[in-house]
Each structure stands twice: as C-alpha cells, then as structure tokens.
C-alpha cells in the first residue's frame, strides 16, 4: 500500500487529499488530474467573486435557461434545507452578503440593503435535470453547500478509482472513507484559537463539516459581520458560535453546519441523517450520536 498526498487551492480554501492505494502511480495521478479538472470547472462556474462566472452571469438572465446538471442538483439540496429552515437557508443570499460587505472586491463596507431576499421557490423553478426558470436580477451564492458538494464529487472520483482509503480535508471540512473500516482521528478546532482543539472525534466513513463565525469576519460602522447572513433580519446570524456536523454526504454536512446558525437541530432532521455539536457561550451541546470527546473544565 502506497500513500500519496495531493494539495490544491479551490473554493476559497486549501484542499488536501491523502490517498492509500495499491494502484499504479500513473493511475493515481490520473485520478488526481480529473479531480483538479473538476475543481477548476466548478470554481469557474460557481464563484460569486468572479464576475464572469456562470453564477454571476445568472443575475442578468431570466426565463428558462439550460444549466449544468450539477447546478440543478445543488438547487435540490438547497430546496430541502430551505424547507427545514423556514426559508432562511437560501442560495439567493448573494446580494445580501455583498450589501453586508462580503462582496466581489472584499470591500467589507456595509451598504444600503437592496431589498428583501427574493423567495427562492417562487423565483427559481427547476424544470428538469438541466433546465431552470428564473426571474431577473437574482444574485446566487452557493457558499453554504457548494464546497461540500464538490467534496462529494472529488471523493467519488477516488472511490470509483483505485483508492483503498482517502482522507480529504478542504479547509477543515473532511471526508474520510476506507474500504477496511479504519478510523480517522480528527481534532475539533477551537474557533477562537486555531492552534487548539476543543475535542477529538474518531470518524469512520463519513463527512465532517464545520462552520464558525470567528473566521471570515469583518467590522463596518462598529458592527461586526460574518459570512452567514440571516435573511429574516438582514444581518449576520448570531445564535451560536460554531457547529460541527457529521453526515454521510459532505453536501448535507456542509449545508447543515451553516443551517444550525439559522434553525434548531430538530427542525433540520427532515433534511437527512446527521449528528452535530454546537458551541454557544463556551458550552458544547451535541446529539447523542456525535461520539466525540470534549475537553471541559
């Protein structure tokens, strides 16, 4: 068994993949090449920060549009979580995030809010596997689950290839998968101090995603903002400080880690199977199945 490590930058963060495999070296590098190709395409299509991206261009379009089928698939995940959060988790939060200061030039200046976040279901209709119908002027942002979706795709490229085990780490969101049921030992980062962990968890074949308000945070007019916007208050969401979610799919784990800032874990049960831990006021609350050890006083 040989171990390989690959690294790249994508979706606004660093991706590291460790692969254990018996395959020929050339085959392993071929799989990584397809991962890179997928990620480059993904980035060029879905970055809100690239004005020429497919996603940015959607704000100038209306009516029925042919779109990549993966976009429809991500919208379906958004619909699921949209229902469970009473409409707070939405891909139409792009304009609000920009207005709060998280814009394509990283201005971090709070501007006038352009208006209500459009109703997702009323303004975006999924026609079929590669067509949607939208109203004009929609500013999409897939930041709440796009990375998780991309992680699932990269993971499946390895699983369909010749990997025996993989550990994918995309900026602290993790997929671990092994044919022989090994576990990975993962520290749960202290959102206030990345040199520390608040606990440790051993994970089998599962995705672990996290969200925290400590990073991607800025101040404007003496108010602190961060990257999770609450469309019901037009402000950054504030109920908890950090979340960790375990789920079979990284796309679900990623989306729910953000959603825990917007809705209760119980309400999110309709989305799928997951376990969670949340940090609030220095206290950890977690579901029974979140089998981690936390360091406590």
């Amino acid at each position: 068994m040989t171990q390989y490590t690959f690294s790249t930058e994508a979706t606004g963060t660093v991706w590291n993949v460790t692969v254990w495999t018996d395959c020929e070296e050339q085959d392993v590098h071929d799989v990584w090449a397809s991962c890179l190709l997928f990620l480059q395409t993904f980035e060029s299509r879905y970055s809100r920060f690239r004005l020429d991206s497919f996603l940015s261009q959607l704000s100038h379009r209306e009516g029925e549009i042919t779109v990549p089928d993966e976009f429809v698939e991500m919208l379906l995940y958004y619909q699921q979580i949209y229902h469970a959060t009473d409409g707070l988790f939405t891909p139409l939060v792009g304009a609000l995030l920009s207005d709060l200061g998280y814009d394509d030039t990283y201005s971090f200046l709070h501007k006038a809010i352009r208006g209500v976040v459009p109703n997702f279901l009323e303004n975006v209709e999924i026609v079929d596997a590669d067509r949607i119908e939208i109203t004009k002027g929609l500013h999409f942002d897939l930041g709440a689950l796009g990375k998780g979706y991309a992680m699932d795709r990269v993971s499946s490229l390895w699983q369909g290839g010749c990997a025996h085990r993989i550990l994918l780490n995309a900026g602290g969101d993790i997929i671990h998968w092994s044919r022989s049921q090994e576990k990975a030992r993962v520290g749960l980062e202290n959102p206030e101090d990345p040199s520390q962990a608040l606990g440790v968890i051993e994970i089998g074949n599962v995705a672990l995603a996290s969200s925290a308000t400590g990073k991607r945070r800025w101040r404007s007019d003496d108010v602190t903002y961060h990257h999770i916007a609450d469309p019901s208050t037009y402000e950054s969401a504030r109920s908890i400080d950090a979340s960790w979610v375990l789920s079979e799919c990284a796309v679900i784990a990623d989306g729910l880690a953000t959603s825990l800032f917007l809705a209760s874990p119980e309400a999110l049960g309709a989305v799928g199977v997951f376990d969670y831990a949340v940090l609030s006021d220095s206290r950890i609350a977690h579901s029974q199945g979140f089998d981690g050890a936390f360091f406590t006083t």
Partner: peptide
C-alpha cells in the same frame, strides 16, 4: 463548558475539523 487544548498536546491527529481556513 468546553476548554481548548493545544493541538501539539493531542496525540495522533489525522486532521483538524474546523471552519474554512
């Protein structure tokens, strides 16, 4: 209440799960 522990004191970590770097 949860307290932080330095990563260097924790043995055998394969990864650290946290918000996006």
């Amino acid at each position: 209440a949860a307290v932080g522990k330095s990563l260097s004191e924790i043995a055998g970590l394969d990864a650290v799960g946290g918000a996006s770097l």
